[in-house]
Design a protein around this nucleic acid. Structure first.
Lengths: 357, 357
DNA sequence: TTGTACGCGTTATCAA
DNA sequence: TTGATAACGCGTACAA
């Protein structure tokens, strides 16, 4: 029953040539006579030959496989989108991708990297890396590495996002709508990895730009309107991080008329707090998110800074491929621009700041 | 620089034995003397030996890799959760999983299956299969197959969900809350694959059970309250399927006081329609979802029938592993039970059926 | 232009 | 209990 796999030898016999010739034809390498080429190709098709990737990899030391290690594909759709893009681009280039979720744990990240090395992947993409030691492990094995979104070490390729631009787009939008009490809910710099490779961490970039935008518009910065914590905190089937921050903000004596949440998942929490406070969005409160991952599902649909998730993944794979085919290149850093998707969660500032419908 | 990989031979030299003995120790196969075993283990640790999986696979015809082909990881978190569970269970058993998204396209599914065969995966898990030809391809190669959620052919293992139970839990909950005008938004049987292996398709099971529950409660079935279509339809950054159905339902002369959506993504659309109609959930309208994927993010949090996503993935891998290690077993079908997660989107039926706040 | 022959790192079969 | 040695299927240097 088990049809013995067809090998080069079978094709060679069918075509009446040697295995080496078949290999040359199929890999388009070396000189091959025109008619034998045609003969071999026909034989390959007739026999239904499929190259044995294991044997090939054993011989060539290339697995045509890459490893993609990411934070956690289930909790933030951002990762699913990036992973999807990496997979798509890999597939188009004859590669397959292994996925691994480190869920923010250094030891797990290390474990995943070791599995990748063991599997002899040709390169590893991180979305995003948390421990530079894991990268060092890869570098020691001369394995190309690409870091997405965050840069943990300076010695590998990286694809980053222009965070200041993203924040600026959001803030400009809100300010143009007449908002002056704009709150910021974002990541606490103390909770997220920062390596010193970039001048500032992503969290600092976002926060600083928020402050800068306010200053530029001549709006004073109110520390009460700044709330920092985790981006994602789901507990007991409840998205609580943005929710609690928003509750606190809305309970302020002088509550904000707009909230900029540095992650769509935080924004969803804000929506929930607003709903419970019986505030209408955007009439009583405007909300802008970041990532554009949940925008389509929320009520009303969320205005959000869209990260170029597909481009992030695609570019990362291209960089990885370049590094695989041409080792020893100097590290390249690509920065991509986000853009603002305006939907229904933002509107003119309510005339009365104390918004109660 | 490139430290040449350490092979069995290196370990053998270090330990002063032959390669065969090292292999026997490391694989715990065959008789090995106690002291040589210790000696070899020390040598393996000292040299930092890592087995070459390519060579091993070439020899054993096992790749310790499985393929997981699913609908689309980016559009429905359900798939991300199942994939995560498969990955976790695989990892615990020395396996890695390849992912592939067929996004509902037969040709793509076929393409993915071919990539898996090419990569010599040891088994393939489908979440969910759409074309029985793809499965046949795998069966011809004697490759174990596990189908999750939907069963396209009867000749492989499968892990299914008790859909009637899920619907019953939701309907009982709503009926106990006093609802009598309960709408159903679900998948159109004509739009989803059905093979005839099961007595009814998932879509029919859900719809039939909805009808049966109403009848059982002595509530007449109103065709106007039944809306069928796709589960997920995101267009132009907008989740429109549940939204449009809900708009139509709420515009009815005698609108429903509760809506049961056979997918959380549909429920999110319902929320949006309700929001625009200025209806409060659950005061004016109760909503129950299915899958429990978006529940934590919506405002208010969604009551939903939770699919056992982790168990689905875990069980599927276990079945696959069993089939790998013991080929030729009779197909096994496991059915798992969903459960109801009650949150804040359901409440007592509004006394006035014409709900306008 | 084509064929021969070796090696990639394992596992498995024999003898010893 | 251990050690040679032959595969596994492929790519490639070298010879023809």
């Amino acid at each position: 029953m088990k049809q013995k796999a067809i090998t080069l030898l079978d094709v060679a016999r069918e075509a009446g040539v040697s295995r080496a010739t078949v290999a040359r034809v199929l890999n388009a390498t070396g000189y091959v006579g025109e008619e034998t080429r045609i003969k071999v190709e026909a034989a390959a098709r007739a026999t239904g030959y499929r190259p044995n990737v294991m044997a090939r990899s054993l011989r060539t030391h290339r697995s045509f496989t890459i490893g993609h290690i990411l934070l956690e594909i289930t909790t933030n759709p951002f990762f699913a989108h990036v992973a999807r893009a990496v997979e798509g681009e890999a597939l188009g280039n004859g590669y397959k991708a292994f996925l691994f979720n480190h869920h923010g744990n250094k030891d797990d990240e290390r474990f995943g990297v070791e599995r990748f090395i063991e599997r002899q992947v040709d390169a590893v993409i991180f979305t995003y890396p948390i421990d530079s030691d894991s990268i060092a492990l890869l570098r020691a094995a001369e394995m190309p590495v690409v870091q997405i979104e965050r840069q943990q070490t300076a010695d590998t390729d990286a694809v980053l996002v222009d965070n200041p631009l993203g924040v600026e787009l959001a803030m400009r939008h809100l300010i143009e709508l007449g908002h002056r009490r704009i709150a910021f809910i974002g990541g606490d710099p103390a909770l997220y990895p920062y390596s010193g490779v970039q001048p500032r961490s992503i969290e600092e970039e976002r926060l600083d730009t928020y402050v800068a935008c306010l200053r530029f518009a001549g709006i004073s910065v109110d520390p009460d309107l700044i709330r920092l914590g985790r981006y994602v905190h789901i507990d007991g089937g409840s998205n609580i991080e943005g929710y609690r921050h928003a509750q606190a903000l809305l309970a302020l004596r002088d509550p904000p008329t707009a909230i900029f949440a540095a992650c769509d998942i935080l924004a969803a929490g804000v929506f929930r707090a607003a709903y419970e406070a019986r505030l209408r969005i955007p009439d009583d409160l405007s909300v802008v998110g970041f990532d554009d991952t949940l925008g389509a599902h929320l009520a009303p649909r969320l205005t959000s800074v869209a990260q170029p998730m597909a481009e992030l993944g695609l570019t990362a794979f291209q960089l990885a491929l370049g590094a695989i085919e041409n080792k020893g290149l100097a590290p390249r850093v690509v920065t991509l621009a986000p853009h603002l998707v305006i939907r229904e969660s933002t509107g003119p500032a309510a005339p009365a700041p104390k918004a109660r419908s």
